[in-house]
Design a protein around this nucleic acid. Structure first.
Lengths: 267, 267
DNA sequence: GCAAATTTGTTCGTATGTATT
DNA sequence: CAATACATACGAACAAATTTG
C-alpha cells in the first residue's frame, strides 16, 4: 500500500474503534506508547491522531490523553405543523411537550431583547428594507443541562407602536408571542416556511455548545418565516442547533403514530 | 495575546479572507513566503494553514498552492408536500421542476436494483423484521454535472410476488414508482415522514461528491418513510446530500409565493 | 496546598517524497 | 528534465494542563 504511515496508523486505530475493541469514552494509548508500538516518531503518531480527530472519532484532552468520542443521544424536533394546534415544532409551548415525550427536561433563558438594524438575511425574509429597525428577542435553550439551541426572533419595529408594547419588554411572554400578537394586533399566523442550512459555528456558538473550536461539527441554521392572514411576514425566527445532537422530523399528511417506527436505541 | 503563533497567523489570514482582501479561488502566498512574512518556521505556517483547512476556508493542492475555497451556489429542495399533487420534494418527477425553477438542469443515473437483507435502520422504518429481504433501487443524481445526491429506495420484497414485477427490473419506471404501485397493487401514498440527520460521509460518498477525505464536510441523510392508505410503510427512501451545496425548505400551510422572499445572492 | 509525574500542545530545524507546471 | 509547492517524517526542546502523591 502506498499510504503514508500516519494514515495507516489512523486506519488501524479506526478499525479498533469501529469494531468495538476501543469503546466510547475509553482512553487510547498515549502518544509515547503508540510511538513505540508503531515504530514511528511522536509527530507522526500525532498526525494520525489529528486525522482521527477531524473524522470526529476521538478527542484529545491536554494533560489527560486521547479518548474515543461518545455519541450524544440525539434530540428530535418536529418541524411540520401539528394539525390540531397549527403550531410548529420548537415553537413556544410546544417544544416542551416534544421534549418531555423523550423523557427529558428543557429549560430556556429569559429572552434578551434588543432593537437593531436588520441585516440582509433578516430584512429580506421579513420583507423590510435592509437596515430597518427590528425587534430581536434572543434565547438560549437547554435540555437536561445540555446546550440545545440558540434562538432569535425578529419582529417589525412598527408592531410596538401599533400596540404590542410587551414585545420590547425583557420578560417572558408566558402566553406566547403569537397569542399575544393575535390579541393586540389581530395578527393570526396562517402559515410558515422553514429554510434549513448547515454551516460552521461561529466562535460564540462553538463556545455556548461546547463544540470544538475548529468547526468540524456544523450547526443547523433554521430560518422560520411566519405569515399572517394577509400573507405578510410577521416574524422571523432563526434557530441554531449543533448537528451532533439534533435531528429533525417533517411530517406530511396524517402520519400514523410511530412510537416504535423510528430508529430507537441501537447498542 | 496568549494565543499560539499558528492561530495568530490563521486569524490574520481568516480576516483577509472574510474581509474580501483574498477572494474566493485566489491563491494564498506560498508557505515559504508566509514563513518570511511572519517570521515563523515553515511547520508553524503549515499548522496555520491546516487550521484554516479544517475550518473549510482554504484548500491546498500539492504542487500548486493554497487557495481560498469557492462557495457553491446552493441547491434548494422543498421537502413538504405540494398541496396540489401530494408529492414531496425530491421525489419522482417533481424534483426536475424544482430544479428548473432555479434555471438548472438535473440528471440521474439508471437505477441500480438489488435484493438485500434489510439492516436495522431500514427494517425498523419499513416495519419488517431485521434481516428480511427488501428490494433496493439506488440512483446517483446530478445537477449541472455537479454530484447532487445519492438516493436509495427500499420496498418490501413481497411487492413483487403480489404483482409489481417491474420493481426488480433495472430500467427506469417512467411513470414513477408510486403511480406504478397504485396501478398494480392499489397502494396509495397518503402521507410520509422525513427524518433528517447530519453525519460524516463514508469514503464512497466522499468520493462521489468530491468531498475532502477527512470528513469535515458533512452530509444530510434524509429518511423518507411513505405510508399507504392503511397506515403501513410502503417505501423508505434514503437520500444523502452534501451540506456544502444543499439547503431545504419546509412549508406549513399555504405559504405565499416568495420568489424574492428568500436570501438571494449576497456578494 | 505544593511538587512531581504524566500527557498533550507548540515551535523549531532538517531531510526527503510527490504532484504540478 | 528542472523548478516550484505542498506532503510526510524524524528529532528535539520547552510550554501548558491535569492528575497524583
Amino acid at each position: 500500500m502506498g499510504n503514508p504511515m500516519y494514515r495507516q496508523i489512523a486506519e488501524e486505530l479506526r478499525e479498533q474503534i469501529e469494531s468495538g475493541i476501543l469503546k466510547p469514552g475509553q482512553q487510547l494509548r498515549t502518544e509515547i506508547e503508540l510511538r513505540e508500538r508503531y515504530g514511528a516518531s511522536r509527530n507522526t503518531v500525532r498526525d494520525a491522531i489529528k486525522w482521527l480527530t477531524t473524522l470526529g472519532l476521538v478527542e484529545t484532552r491536554p494533560g489527560q490523553g486521547t479518548f474515543v468520542v461518545k455519541k450524544i443521544d440525539p434530540f428530535i424536533t418536529t418541524l411540520s405543523a401539528d394539525p390540531t394546534t397549527g403550531l410548529g415544532g420548537g415553537e413556544g409551548a410546544i417544544y416542551l411537550s416534544q421534549v418531555s415525550d423523550q423523557d427529558r427536561e428543557a429549560f430556556y433563558s429569559e429572552p434578551q431583547v434588543e432593537i437593531q438594524k436588520a441585516p440582509f438575511e433578516v430584512s429580506s425574509r421579513l420583507r423590510v428594507p435592509e437596515g430597518t429597525q427590528v425587534i430581536s428577542r434572543h434565547q438560549r435553550r437547554y435540555i437536561d443541562d445540555t446546550p440545545w439551541s440558540l434562538q432569535t426572533s425578529f419582529y417589525p419595529r412598527g408592531f410596538v407602536a401599533q400596540g404590542a408594547e410587551r414585545l420590547i419588554e425583557a420578560g417572558d411572554i408566558t402566553e406566547g408571542t403569537m397569542t399575544y400578537l393575535a390579541a393586540t394586533l389581530g395578527l393570526q399566523q396562517t402559515s410558515y416556511q422553514d429554510w434549513i442550512k448547515v454551516r460552521a459555528p461561529d466562535p460564540t456558538e462553538a463556545n455556548f455548545f461546547n463544540l470544538p473550536q475548529d468547526g468540524r461539527v456544523g450547526v443547523f441554521e433554521i430560518f422560520r418565516t411566519a405569515f399572517d392572514q394577509t400573507g405578510r411576514p410577521m416574524r422571523l425566527t432563526v434557530s441554531v442547533f449543533p448537528t451532533d445532537r439534533n435531528q429533525f422530523i417533517v411530517n406530511a399528511g396524517e402520519v400514523p403514530d410511530l412510537k416504535e417506527g423510528g430508529a430507537s436505541k441501537k447498542t
